[in-house]
Every structure is written in C-alpha cells, then in structure tokens.
Design a protein around this nucleic acid. Sequence first.
RNA 1: CGGGAUGUGGCGCAGUUUGGUAGCGCACUUCGUUCGGGACGAAGGGGCCGCAGGUUCAAAUCCUGCCAUCCCGACCA
Length: 596
Amino acid sequence: MRVSCLMLVTLRDTPADAEITSHQMLLRGGFIRRVTAGVYAYMPLMWRVIQKISSIIEEEMDSIGCLQTLLPQLHPSELWKQSGRWQGYTAGEGIMFHLKDRQGREIGLGPTHEEVVTKIASESIHSYKQLPVSLYQIQTKFRDEIRPRFGLMRSREFIMKDAYSFHSNEKCLQGKYNEMNDAYKRIFSRCGLKTVAVDADSGAIGGASSQEFMVTADSGEDLILTSPDGKYAANQEKAISKASEPLPLPEGKSCFLDTPSQGSIKELCSANGLDASQIVKVLAMLAIKEDGQQQPLLISLRGDQELNEVKLTNFLSGLLEKPLIDLQPITQEKLNAQGLGEWPFGSIGPDLSNELLKKAKTWENQFIRLADKTAIELKTFVCGANEIDKHRAFITWADLGVHPKTSDFRKAKPGDRCSHDPRQKLKESRGIEVGHIFQLGKKYSKALDASFTNEEGINENFWMGCYGIGVSRLAQAAIEQNHDSSGMSWPISIAPFEVIIVPANIQDPLQKSLSELIYQKLKDQGVDALLDDRKERAGVKFKDADLIGIPWRLVIGRDASSDKVELTKRDCKKTELLKTDEAVKKLLEEIFTNRS
RNA sequence: CGGGAUGUGGCGCAGUUUGGUAGCGCACUUCGUUCGGGACGAAGGGGCCGCAGGUUCAAAUCCUGCCAUCCCGACCA
C-alpha cells in the first residue's frame, strides 16, 4: 500500500475530548473517527489491525475445534423473555437497544447471543452423539452503555468475538473451559499483550465459574487484587481476603451510650476511644427485583469494612430466586415517599424493628437481615440503639435476638491478608478487561428449554459455556500497553503494516527508484509493506511513521547513492545503516521469525 | 439518572466580564524558495459562533429553555 492512497489524515493537536493516551493516539493517527457518543468508524489502518487480531482469534478458535458462524443482530423479544432477561436488559438502566418493527413487534439489538445460539442449538441438536459443539462469531455488538468512555474501551457499538459451547455433561464443559483458557492465553500473547487471568464475577451473564483476562495498564477501569506469590488474582468485585483481626472490646456490661452528632464510624470512634473493628454498622438498602417488588434490607458489617455490592447482589439473587435490577440506599426522601416516618440513620442497629415498615406503600414490610461474617464473628460489639444519638456497647448477637443470614459481603482491599496464605498481603493493580470466559451450566438451556437425549434415553438440558473477547477494545488496549511520547508502537503481529518504507526525498530519482525496488521486493515476499510516496518533507514522514507505530521503518535517503539504507525498530528506535540487500534480508528474517 | 465542566471553520484555542456584526495556530488551495525530524514567503478558500426563543437600534457576548460532548459514580468485552 502507498501512503498517497491510504487516506491518511493525522492531527498535530490532540483532540480535547480524548482522555487516555490510546484514545488520543487513535484519533491523532486517523485510526478511528467518532460518529456519535460511543460509536466509532474504524478507518482503514484500524480495520487492518482488527483484521489481524481477528485472524489470530480465528486460528486459535479453529485449532480447538470451534465452528465460525454469523448470528443475527436483531433478536425477537420473546426469546429474551423466555430466558428472563428482557426486563433486566431493557427496563430501567438496561443496556439493550430495543425497538418495534412495523407490526409493533418488539426487537432487541444483540448485546450478547446466548438466547439466539441456544435456540439454534436446541433446534439442531437432538442427541448426545452430536455433542460437544462450540460455535463462535466475530461481530458487532450493541450495548447502550450508561456512560460510554475512552473511545473503543467502552463504546456502544463494538466488535466482539463470542463463543458458545454445548455439552452433554459438566466434565466435558470443564474440559472445553480449560481449553478456552489456554487458547485465550495464546491469543493474547500472540497479539503481543501482557495479560493476567483473574477470578471474576459472572455478572448479568450468570453461571458458575468465570475468569477474566486483563491487560495490565494504569488507565484500566478494573481494580485487580493479586497475591505476591502470583497464586491468587481476582477482580475486586469478586476478591476474597482475610480481614484483619478485630481489636477485642474489654469486658463490660451492656449499656447505652449517648452519641450526639456521632453518625459516622469515625466520629463514634474518636469520641469514645473505639476502634472501627469493635463496631457493627448497619446499612439500610432497598433491593428492586425484576418483577418490580421492592425489598428493604439491613446489612450489618464490621465498622472497618466496606460493602461489596456485587457479592450482595449475587447473594440476594439466589435468596430471592429472581434477578435484581437495582440496589439503592434507603434515604429519608424514599421513606417520605412511602409515607414512613423518620428513621434513626446513624444509629441503626441490626435489630431495627419491622414495625417501621408497617405502613409502607409499595415496599415489603419485613426486612431481610444480612450480616457479613466478620460482623457475626464479633463476640461483643458497639452498635446503634435505633434511637437518634444513642448507641449500645458490650452487645452480643444473642442480646439483639436477630439472626441475620450470613455470608461474605465485604470488599477485599489492597493490604488485606490473602486467604490462601495469611502471611501475604494483597496488592492492587489496574487492568482492562479484554476477555471473559464462563461456565454457564444449564442456566440458559433450562430457561429456553434446550435439550437433547442422553445416553440413557432421557431428555436433558445442555451444559453450556460462553467465552468473549472484546476485539475492538483489545486493539486499543494494545496501544495503552505499547506506546511512547511520539506515538503508538504496534506489536508486529497486529500492526496495520509490518514495515514502512520512507524515501527521505521522493524527488530524488535514485531514492525514488530504490524505494520502489525494495517495496516491490518486500511485497513479493509477502510482507505487509507501506511505501510513503508522498511529496512531503522527510521530517513530516518520520513523525507520521512514529505516530502510526509501524514496527519497522526503512529509510532510503542520502546514502542511497552508495546502496545503503537505514533500518529502524520502532519500539526501541534502534537504527542500523546497512547495504540494501542486507537490510532487506535482515528485515525478512526478523519479520518471518517473529510472525506468530 | 445524580455531581462537575465545555460547546466559536477539519483539529487546538482566543474573543463573552464591559453587546457594535469574528480572530489566531495547525490543516487545506495556488505560486515561489526549501528538502533527514511536523520549513519559509506571498496570495487564497472555508464559520447560520450547539439549537430555539427573548431583551436591544444592534447579540458569539445579556436572559430563558432545550440539545450535545467530556470528566466523577452505577454498567461491561
């Protein structure tokens, strides 16, 4: 390809609305253009990158026996109603774009394809003899993100590879899951990315086990916690840890404390000489279920711990046997709207009376009481007295007479002791999620009644797994990990071109003809070569070459008369002056040995 | 949706406080000189100043409403 034909438009100034480096560089290099919020056009250079990533993914998926397909993007609402996700994905802050066709039928624009693929599998597969099967596609997904951000990192229209596997038993699913795990590691490493695999929450997709693949980068949106020995890595949403030992309260008889304007743990501690780990704090929250039911909750936590809402949501979804669509703190405004009186916020105890909910208009009138393990383990503690400006001290759970459901609801934090080895402390780093694999189990096959006949002649629902890679996100994440002050520096396996040939002065007939000769030679060898044949000054071409990050640069300049050219490696900027033949030979060697 | 900021040629910005009919740098076009790290000179082209109302002799500038974009939280590949 010739730069003169490439529609290359680079910007000298950084567009003001781009925040992170990779986004800025993609815009400056003319790789992407924004069309509307969270929607981008992939320009020719970017499309080449995406194609290269796609090929690597295709090779790896094919190598583990996955079948490529292309599924529809318009999904009938019935299918999503069957799986029980229509409400959650469209109502409230749902992320599915949806519309009505001319007949008034509701249609969703595919944010993910479990429903469609499960339907297809169930129609085509009737016997265990046809299993296992894995299908995948590389396609645009639509998600009406609440807040699109950072260019392709969180866009509303993005390219994703999604795979779905169907099995006759759990063991087979686990086998495929492990194969996928390995394939993912190969894919990311072939793309030149450093990634960590972390335990993850399976979120809205649901299912049992799940792992995320994170490109490590300071600009990442996710907080990852890892152990120094590398044996444990998890997304903070999911991470577990051992909380520090609480400071035991000294002996004492249960009593009331006057605690005027000590509504926060901090104030309570400093006014009474307490440690936060000696207090049980109670959060009042409202869970909104998919069917609209509103359930008040009281969650007890040790004073020095924070609530992990993901853990709470998952626990409640199991308890209520319905997905939650929202979780919000109870505020005085909400109480007023329910026609309820004032609650003693700041002094609420785990035993706050159900009486307070009696007159609620739309809420359930019993609390669900929950407590984090660390709170339950306290022998004696300080807690709210359910009266403004009053707390109680030297209280035990027996004194309170309530029996909250107990689980792990606390947020693991950097510095916490690791569960597998308390001598180690969790470290934090940031990551960009580029892949996620799930063992779904029978969640969708049950909901959509997708089954096969097993060896015993009995009808059984499929065991399923699903496996995603954010292709367009991965491309941007690659820049986040590979750039310097002058621009991008693509890993060669996914670079839009492998080498750029730059005649310093295209007007010089010798330089021009030598450049053309080398260009032809490289092309004949199957190298992705770009020839900068523009009538620009050398400086301009160098700046552009650096910005668009082509891994190798061959400059044909003043030494052309002695048949010498310069070979430069983009990532380290190391330059060698070589005879033309040697330069071409070395380049071919480098490119062919490093092609993954 | 809540909190904050910003909307002026393709990009980056000034002008808004104190109303007088739009300017700078980059990019673009033409000519000349230059030619190894975003050249110089000359001459050009391009803007209903986010949109809609209002105030005024006069609005980018003042007032009202809307819209859009970006940043901080919930969402996620």
